[in-house]
Design a protein around this nucleic acid. Sequence first.
DNA 1: CGGGGTCTTGAAACGGCTCAACAAGAGTGG
DNA 2: CCACTCTTGTTGAGCCGTTTCAAGACCCCG
Lengths: 261, 261
Amino acid sequence: MRPSRLHSRAVTLPDAPPIPPRCAHCGLRASGAFHQLAPGELGFVEDLRSATERVPAGHALIREQADGGRLFTLYAGWAFRYKTLSDGRRQILNFLLPGDLFGLQQRFSEGATYGVEALTDVSVCVFQGTRLWELYRAHPRLGYDLTWLCAREEQMLDENLLTTGRRSAVERVAVLLIHLFKRMQRLGLVDGDNGCPFPLTQQHMADALGLSLVHTHRTLRRLQALGLHTLDEGRLVLRNPGALTQLADYATQPLEPLPLL
Amino acid sequence: MRPSRLHSRAVTLPDAPPIPPRCAHCGLRASGAFHQLAPGELGFVEDLRSATERVPAGHALIREQADGGRLFTLYAGWAFRYKTLSDGRRQILNFLLPGDLFGLQQRFSEGATYGVEALTDVSVCVFQGTRLWELYRAHPRLGYDLTWLCAREEQMLDENLLTTGRRSAVERVAVLLIHLFKRMQRLGLVDGDNGCPFPLTQQHMADALGLSLVHTHRTLRRLQALGLHTLDEGRLVLRNPGALTQLADYATQPLEPLPLL
DNA sequence: CGGGGTCTTGAAACGGCTCAACAAGAGTGG
DNA sequence: CCACTCTTGTTGAGCCGTTTCAAGACCCCG
């Protein structure tokens, strides 16, 4: 079906930044895109964190079958959640950007119900899922944040469901481009020319949008020919964000700071 | 596009059971399908509840544009969450059965990002969203349960996304039938003949599955002709659950008790 | 130089959509 | 009590958006 992406950059260390040993020096928290935590909360989070890891592109972070109950925060790089049917058809559920939490659902059901794969080289913080209940008791604020993160991800899934269920191919591609662009923007990762890193393969886009690879490609070409965007060498530039937004019938969300961890 | 379902049973009271004034006498909690709460927690929930309402079929529970931050638990009847595109195309995100919580996402973003409509006559408990933070501080266990409910709904959305993105029409319909059947079973609402209430219109199914009304109808007929199910007068009977499950490539989840409120 | 991954393009087949029309049942008003 | 309307279910015919199949180009890497 889909060629196995092993693509491993082999023995060399993944090309993703290391994570500072102390949460107080966290690069993400310094970016200003996230809530600040009280010192006690920060200490608890740091204590809850059992490891940091770097994982090369194409490798699994959570396996679709029976993975442990570990909890992750993506520190750097891109990843995606997905589900597959028994005959190999794959649906990408959503993409994960720095600051995104994943693995939470595993805590509430036996084993993983979805897989997570690193899209680029990636650094993650790993937390002990078993102590989750403790978090709610000791730091209700963090529990609140967890629910927030979960609700926000659900909102993105709602949007994706609307997309795959009701939008045409052009609309789908347009939504994908805008949505990821906006998320990068919120993280301060968009440069002055409306450009941002965009490591997705056409296959990834197809799998996320419920389209075939070939048709995704043709649709992408069509949008590009209309001068709405360019997409080269892993970099996305929105040439005409307004037209793209209108085409996608996309509703922009306000950009308040996000909870983290 | 879609005819406005106003269908109001007019002036007569909705045909949905009233809700006991005291949470201690809650019919849902008595059913055994849900977690038990400690007396203090139950008292808090009862205090948090600002009203109970009965809403007739076809009426809005949450409006897609700027609704308040109220929180609901469905006590009896069916409802559904949905999103619409500006030209009227509608996607049903998921169906709500007794015990389901909704309105949570509203708390975390300005206004509603989806609508909720009563599918049958419905009774709901209404909670004060503004006191949500208090809940986390006073009763961490309830906060934990809230996250659980949110994560569980996300799992259902994952499944729906896989369905609309990758499954064929027959598979989609099969999944819908099985999934709703299983959920009714968990609530103890399936009778001895593998039958349960099923108030959905073909239009609802189409809107949930990302199919057209006509094609949904034909597909339904096809499955029925194969002897897999019957669907008459608002009652669904699974004639051949095994074949249906296999056709849908459906993974059954373990049935532990659910959190409530 | 060979091989795997990605992107690209054409041609043909098909699944699902749209349009259109009709039947049955329920509620409404004269 | 009977037309009228509205909702839901039903069915046929033809079209079109998307998929599938197939093949080739380019590029990086071993």
